[in-house]
Design a protein around this nucleic acid. Structure first.
Lengths: 175, 175
DNA sequence: GGAATTTGATTAACATGTTAAGGGTATCCC
DNA sequence: GGGATACCCTTAACATGTTAATCAAATTCC
């Protein structure tokens, strides 16, 4: 190892700082959620990468295995991707022949997507490994605690959904 | 509204599908964490945006207010950003004169960063609104439940940290 | 003390996140 | 029935995520 590592590489501010002691940064809810999610995804990424898939591409293919066909808008909702990201990814997945698309006869604006045989084959190659990793995570953290955590996340999500409109007229920061 | 909205825009697969009933996609842990975090960040982004800051830029400035100076590597750890992202953002923040940088005298490889007066002023302009939003979230979800949730996230994180090395030799997916 | 190695930071290249704008269809409604 | 409107999807533009490669500086080790 090069260089004697300084204790932590930073100098704390003197007590006489003129700022309120804001909530310790690393303990904020967004950071907690970000770190937890990253800790989880770090487990999956190598396996996906070995199969030439990104996390988002996997999400899409994975969602497609549950249905015969699905409209683009609905797919965006299910895979939790924004329209522009989805457009790009579908273009690439189609070029790789992992999915098939056509337009709805009844409404030419709508696109309809389905997974291809080649896509299915890929999913089947990756799924066992993913399942094993998921099982290991469940085992380490505890199945009951995992279910409890997901419940809480769901409640949090619904709690905040109510704020969407309520906090719209928040003076101070409007343009 | 245009077009009669189909029930859900997708057609479920027939019961005779040849695939195991993988865990319902939207209930996977990664998706739960992603949706929860997005629900939280959706509350903050508009305010940050009104001040010309992205989420990550805010994280960096926010972290800088807690210290007099900090080395780039340590900042990356605290703000939970990868080196390349941090490099780009620091370049931009420096161009906007929101931060100041120099190199460590003892080790010319290391960069040392601090927030500028202008950066501090910006933080002080944004912080009250962020605090108010955070307080509203806490109030809606419940302070006790929030603390409990963050505990669980911390435990999850540490549970998975142990997997990093253990699962390295996982046959099947190696190159 | 100098070659080999390690380290800190940046750059490169590609994929996605995010917001705004555009283009083609479909619906409203007069 | 045709202009206004709403909708679906895609492009555009810029910022970040992610991995690999690069470059300079510092260590190691002989």
């Amino acid at each position: 190892m090069a260089g004697k590592k300084s204790p932590n590489g930073s100098h704390l501010k003197s007590a006489g700082s003129r700022h309120a002691p804001m909530r310790e940064f690393s303990r904020s809810l967004p950071m907690s959620l970000l770190r937890a999610r990253e800790a989880v995804m770090r487990q999956f990424r190598p396996s996906l990468r070995n199969h030439g898939l990104t996390e988002q591409q996997w999400r899409i293919l994975r969602a497609l295995t549950a249905v015969e066909t699905i409209e683009v808008t609905e797919l965006a909702r299910v895979a939790f991707l924004l329209g522009p990201s989805l457009s790009r990814i579908l273009r690439d997945l189609e070029a790789r022949q992992l999915i098939e698309r056509r337009t709805a006869e009844a409404d030419l604006r709508r696109g309809v997507v389905s997974i291809s045989p080649k896509g299915l084959k890929l999913i089947e190659a990756v799924a066992p490994n993913s399942e094993a990793i998921y099982a290991e995570i469940t085992s380490r953290f505890g199945a009951r605690k995992l279910a409890e955590l997901q419940d809480m996340l769901g409640v949090l999500e619904r709690s905040l959904a109510a704020m969407e409109v309520a906090g719209e007229g928040n003076a101070a920061d409007e343009e």
